[in-house]
Design a protein around this nucleic acid. Structure first.
Lengths: 125, 125
DNA sequence: GTTTGACTTAGAGTGCACTCTAAGTTCTAG
DNA sequence: CTAGAACTTAGAGTGCACTCTAAGTCAAAC
C-alpha cells in the first residue's frame, strides 16, 4: 500500500518545505494550517499534497514579512468559505502593496550600498 | 551662537533619522557609532552632521537585514583606519550579494502572491 | 524481541532588536 | 523663580518567531 499512500511524515514534510519539524508543529499550533493534519493510527502526522502546497504558499507570505498573526487571519477567512473571497483578496492586495514597498526600500538601500562600494573601489574613501 | 552650532539634540536627531531616541542610545551602546557622540557641558548628546550621515547609512544596512553584530564589525573595521579598506569592501560585497538574494526571493514570492490574487479575481478559487 | 531512531505532547528557553522604566539632572518658557 | 518638558543612566521588560527539552510512545532493522 505504500504506492498508494502519498502522505508524508513530519520529517519528510520538513525536508520538502525547508522548514524544521519544530516549525511545522509550531505553525500548526499557531492556527496556520488550513485543515487538521491527518494522523496515522499511531497519532503521527501525515501531510497530504494539499498540506505541503499550503505550507509552500504560507512560506511565501512569511518570506515577504507577513506576520504570523496576519497569516492566521487569512487562514480564518479561508475557513469561512467562499463568502470570504473578497476579504481574502483585499488582504492579499494590501499585503502586495507592502511587498512592493519593501522591494522599493531595499532597492533604494542597495543603490546606497553600491555607491559606498564604488567609493571604496576608487579609494576616495 | 545658535547660528554657528549645527549639532542636534537627541530628539532632533531622532526626528531627522526616523529612529526613536531610545534606538539612538541603544545603537550607541551597542557600539554602532563611528565616534563618541559629542556632549554638551550638561552631558546631553550633540549629534554632528557626520553622526547623522552615518546613522542614515547604518539604517540602510539595517533595512537590508544586516544584523547589529555585522554592523558593529563594519564599524570596528572603520576604526582600524585606511588599512581596513579591503576588508570593508569585502564585507560590503558579501552583504550586497545577500541583498540581491533577498530581492530575488521577494520578487519570486510576489509573483506567487500575484498569481493567487489573479485566481481570486477570476473566481476560480 | 530488542535496540535505535522518529515521533508525540506541553511547556520552557533563546536570540534579536528594540522599548520602556525609574530616579535623577538640566533646559526652556512664562 | 518655578513648572514642565527633555535629557541622563543602568537595567528591566517586550514581542516575535522560532527552537529546544523532557518524558514518554511508536516504528524499522537486525
Amino acid at each position: 500500500m505504500t504506492l498508494v499512500d502519498v502522505s508524508l511524515s513530519i520529517s519528510e514534510a520538513a525536508e520538502r518545505t525547508g522548514l524544521s519539524t519544530h516549525t511545522l508543529r509550531y505553525y500548526e499550533r499557531s492556527g496556520l494550517m488550513l485543515e487538521r493534519i491527518e494522523r496515522a493510527p499511531s497519532s503521527h502526522r501525515r501531510y497530504s499534497d494539499a498540506d505541503i502546497g499550503w505550507v509552500e504558499f504560507l512560506t511565501k507570505l512569511r518570506s515577504t514579512a507577513m506576520p504570523i498573526s496576519k497569516v492566521r487571519e487569512y487562514v480564518e477567512l479561508v475557513r469561512l468559505g467562499e463568502d470570504s473571497t473578497p476579504a481574502r483578496l483585499e488582504l492579499l492586495l494590501k499585503h502586495r502593496a507592502s511587498v512592493v514597498a519593501q522591494l522599493d526600500e531595499m532597492a533604494n538601500s542597495l543603490a546606497v550600498i553600491d555607491y559606498k562600494i564604488a567609493t571604496y573601489r576608487k579609494g576616495s574613501k
